[in-house]
Design a protein around this nucleic acid. Structure first.
Length: 494
RNA sequence: GCACCGAUGGCGAAGUGGCUAACGCGCCGGUCUGCAAAACCGGUAUUCGUGGGUUCGACCCCCACUCGGUGCUCCA
């Protein structure tokens, strides 16, 4: 069974098969590093992460390129306002971006390309377009792309150019363009703005040309897949296609992957609505990175998803169930003498198949998730009855391993991410934003917890349950949950 | 205005022209436990926005309507 993905270009679901060496060559539009990333940004990166993880699980090799836009209007404006040179300003947010990606378990692309380190590639591309009169220089020294020269313009988004001309607002201040729809390739330098001296003249690159130049530099003129948020479809990706194909005369990306927008509490996330959250905001409120990851992945990428705090709690609980199960299956004593329940073996096998079928079917993460939970219940029953065989145990572990290769939530790294966020908040003087429960929870070290558990065990042995319960209650209030199992006491942080 | 997407239980959400409409969370009752927790069992939608149509048969196909959302502008 092939991995099938919806292709925005053509509007159909198609098999995703790498053109060369079984290596998936993909490009994903990365962040513009002018501020901390918000959860909408991360939904896109998270789903791209699932795509790359699943492609690899299926045996594909990966060559994934992501850009960092480290020069643009917003960066210049914000850096100036902060009185910081733009490279310092962007370095800070680029670092923060990768810290956040790490917290969410998003793998690094094989290649990260920074716009400011690829200026010559961009100017060469523009020169190439200029040589065919597709790029032209305006009076102020800016360069534009002549859309009239690219008849396929609109093929990705299905835009009707006529309609756009009539209905859309036109940039009135860019009157130097030959045609209203022509877009900037190169922006002439202005006082107080970062600029480069190039054969095109002094200036800085437009946003669209960055991606074309860097994608082609690393992946060649034609490659397998290009990804991004749905909002980038037009005009950004449309422009990329126009520039790239005009220069190379071959098809640019074969497959276009777009992740739909995220709503927050039913509305589009925006600062004015007061429903705008960065990852750091959520971590400081005490939500776990794993819960955020799992929630953002729980709705398939082509559906709009509504982010809520209830959903976050729910995801955290669901993950707890999975982790408890994973721990249990790890330590369960498989009974070799018990005759294996054939129905269980069949179920595990079937659900493992369903898991792959779901992800192969346009990355249906919701269904993939469900097949794992089916096995969780069956596995728990078998372990309750001590009828699980060593083979079944192994089969379950293999499913969990595949699951976690893609979802990456079973290993608990949450405390570390949270601690980082707390340290960051303190260093930025944002202590007030740290949830108080978080501070009490973090104040207790593992050693202290173990010591209290030892004391409680002693009390229980003496059947001093009042004291035992007191300790348990005390720990609970500090965010530590105890579980008395047959094999002893285990604990976890809330 | 033009274009597009969605509407499934208390909440999130999958799904198929015809078996009891997945799965998760929550809630109620039970088993287990010193008590909890975890785990398990049972109960939680005779029903898939509304109206009409196609069909032997529709939640799934078609039409209309209502509601919600998105794009057309910087935006993941």
């Amino acid at each position: 069974m092939d991995l099938e993905l919806f292709n925005t270009l053509g509007g159909r679901t198609e098999p995703l098969v790498p053109a060369l060496d079984n290596t998936l060559r993909m490009y994903c539009c990365g962040p513009t590093v002018y501020d901390y990333g918000h959860i909408g940004n991360f939904r896109t990166f998270l789903h791209v992460d699932v795509l790359r993880r699943y492609a690899r699980l299926r045996g594909m090799a990966l060559k994934h390129v992501m850009n960092i836009t480290d020069v643009d209007d917003k960066i210049i404006r914000n850096a100036n306002a902060a009185g910081t040179p733009i490279h310092e300003y962007t370095a800070k947010f680029a670092r923060a971006f990768f810290e956040d990606m790490d917290a969410l378990g998003v793998e690094r692309p094989e290649i990260v390309a920074r716009a400011t380190e690829n200026i010559p590639e961009m100017t060469r591309l523009i020169e190439r377009l200029a040589s065919e009169d597709i790029a032209y220089r305006a009076e102020d020294g800016s360069w534009y792309f002549r859309i009239a020269k690219f008849p396929d313009y609109g093929k990705l988004s299905g835009k009707d150019l006529e309609g756009i001309e009539d209905g859309a607002r036109v940039d009135v201040d860019e009157y130097e363009k030959d045609h209203a729809r022509d877009f900037a390739l190169w922006k002439a330098c202005k006082a107080g703005e970062a600029s480069w001296d190039t054969p095109l003249g002094c200036g800085r690159p437009g946003w669209h040309i960055e991606c074309s130049a860097m994608a082609m530099k690393h992946l060649g003129p034609s490659f397998d897949l290009h990804a991004g948020g749905e909002d980038l479809m037009f005009p950004h990706h449309e422009n990329e296609i126009a520039q790239s194909e005009s220069a190379s005369h071959v098809p640019f990306a074969r497959h276009w992957f777009h992740v739909r927008f995220l709503l927050v509490e039913g509305k589009k996330m925006s600062k004015s609505e007061g429903n705008f959250y960065t990852l750091r905001d959520l971590l400081l409120k005490g939500y776990r990175a794993s819960a955020i990851r799992f929630l953002l992945l729980s709705v398939p990428y082509r559906h709009q998803m509504n982010f809520t705090f209830d959903g976050l709690t729910e995801s955290a609980n669901a993950i707890e169930r999975l982790r408890t199960f994973a721990r249990r299956i790890e330590t369960a004593r498989a009974d070799t003498s018990a005759h294996a329940d054939g129905a269980l073996s069949t179920l595990i096998e079937e659900k493992h198949r369903t898991f792959h079928a779901a992800l192969s079917n346009d990355l249906n993460t919701a269904e993939a998730r469900a097949s794992v939970f089916d096995v969780v219940r069956a596995g728990n029953i078998a372990m309750d009855n001590a009828t699980i065989s060593p083979e079944q145990r192994t089969a379950v572990q293999q499913l969990l391993q595949d699951f976690d290769t893609v979802f990456a939530v079973l290993t608990d790294r949450d405390a570390e991410s949270t601690r980082h966020a707390v340290e960051w908040a303190k260093s930025e003087g944002r202590d007030a934003e740290i949830a108080s429960e978080l501070l009490t929870t973090l104040s207790l070290s593992s050693e202290q917890i173990e010591a209290l558990i030892g004391e409680r065990n002693e009390a229980r042995r003496r059947r001093n349950f009042a004291r035992a319960d007191e300790i348990r209650k005390d720990l609970m209030e500090k965010g530590v949950i105890l579980e008395d199992g047959k094999e002893g006491v285990s604990w976890k942080r809330k």
